[in-house]
Design a protein around this nucleic acid. Sequence first.
RNA 1: CGAGGGUUUCCCGAGUGGCCAAAGGGGGCGGACUGUAAAUCCGUUAGCUGAGCUUUCGGUGGUUCGAAUCCACCACCCUCGACCA
Length: 419
Amino acid sequence: MNFFDFDISEHDNVFDVLKERGFIKQTTHEDEIRELFAKEKVKFYTGFDPTADCLHIGHFMQIIVMIYMQKYGHIPYVLIGGGTGMIGDPSGRTDMRQMMTKETVMENCNNFKKLFDKYVDFSDNKAVAVNNADWLWDLNYIDFIRDIGRHFSVNRMLRAECFKQRLEVGLSFLEFNYMLMQSYDFLELYKRHGVKMQFGGDDQWSNILGGIDLVRSEEGQQVYGMTFALLTTSEGKKMGKTQKGALWLDERKTSVYDFYQYWRNVEDADVRTCLSMLTFLPMKEVERLASLEGAEINKAKEILAFEVTKLVHGKEKAEQAQNAARALFEGGGNMENVPKTVISEAEFAGDGMGVVNLIKQIGLVPSNGEGFRTIEQGGLTINGEKVTDKKLYITKDMFDDGKLLIKKGKKTFHMVELG
RNA sequence: CGAGGGUUUCCCGAGUGGCCAAAGGGGGCGGACUGUAAAUCCGUUAGCUGAGCUUUCGGUGGUUCGAAUCCACCACCCUCGACCA
C-alpha cells in the first residue's frame, strides 16, 4: 500500500507535483486551487461508473492521482456510480451504451469497492467511499426537475462539446440527463461532506463544470474542478486498448505477463508520458530514462513495464513477469512463469495431436484457418524449430523434458506441459 | 400519420440477378527490415483438420435453374412534410 517512501519531488504543493508530471489538463481556477491545496486538507472526489466488473488502466490513472493527493494529506472521496451507471455517460462516446440491469450495476459496485481497497488507504477516514445510488435511486422526478433541472440551460448544454458529436448520430433523453446526475452528485457531496473539488478525465470537463455551476447557484459557494490528461499514445489514440479490449487490472482478465508486455512494447515516443504518469519514479530519473536513444531506450521500457506491473500486481508478480519475458526474449533464465497450458499426456499418445488443433486449443489462434495460415506464412516455431508442415502431428516424443515451447509470430510465446 | 433515403463481412464503405466469401480503405495477423519501438515494403484476413462443402449482406417469407442484388411484409435509423406546440 505504501507506493512511494522516498521524496518524490522537490515540490511541497501537490498541484506542482501533478503539473510537473503532466497530469493536469484543465483547471477551473488554477491559482485558487493551488492556494487551497497549500492551506487546507481538501476533500475532493472522482467518480467511477461501474460499467464493468473490474478496473482498467484508465481508472488506474485516476487512482494514481488520488494516491498523490492522499500522500499530500488531502482526502479522496471515491464515488462509485451505482446511480449514474444506470444511465451511462455519453461523453466521448459515439454510440449508446448497453443498458445494465440494477443487479449488474450493484454487483459491479461491490466489486469496485473491493478493488479500490487495494490501492487507496481508507483507514482513519484518509479516504472515503460513497455511492451515488444512495441519493440518485430514490429521487422524485418532479422534485428533481424543479429543484435541479431549472438550473440547467438546454441551449448551453447543446453547445457543450460532449453532446455536439452525439447530436449528429443521436442522443437519447436518458443520456442527455447524465450531466444533471453528475452535477447533482457534486452538490450532494458538497452538502453532505463538504467536498470542494471534483477530479476526472478530460472527457469529464463539461460534467464537472455542470456540478460547479449547480453548487454555485444552489449553495452560493465556489467549488473547483480539475481534469487530467487521458492516456493516449503519441498518435492520439487511447492507450490501454488491446486486441481483446481494455487493459484490465485483474489478472484473470489480462494476465500479468500480458500486462507487463503491453508496457514493455510501448512506442518510444510514449515512454516519457508513461513513466511520469504511471510510475512513482522521481522526475529526474524519468527524464534520464526517457532521453535514452536508439536501442538503449529498451532499458527504459523494461523499467516502465516493471514499475507499472509492480504497482498493479505487486512486486513478486512483476518480477515473475519480467523473468519470463527475459527468458523468452533474451534466452536463458527460467521459464517457470511463461504463459502455459497443461495438457494430458494421453492427448499426444499414438498419432498425436495436429499442430493446428493444438495451437487453437491453447488460444494462440482463434480458428483453424488462422492456424494453417500462420504456418503457411512461416509464423510458427516449436522448440526452436520452424514448423513447415501444416499437417504436423505432435507426439509425446517431441516434447523436451515434458515441455513444448511454441512461438507464434515474433513475440507470442506459450508453453505446453504434459500433465 | 404521409413522402423519400438507408441497414453489407471486425470497422468504414463499394456492389442493383450468375464472373460474389463479396472492390477499396482502416484495423488485425504473418513475413522482411529493426531495438520485443516507429516508419516502410510484401503477403494475408468467414467457418470447416483444409479446396470442396457449410454459413454470411437488418428480420421473415416469396419469385427464379440461380438473389447482397427482384417482390411482399416486419423492425430499426435518417431527411422532408402533416399533426401537435
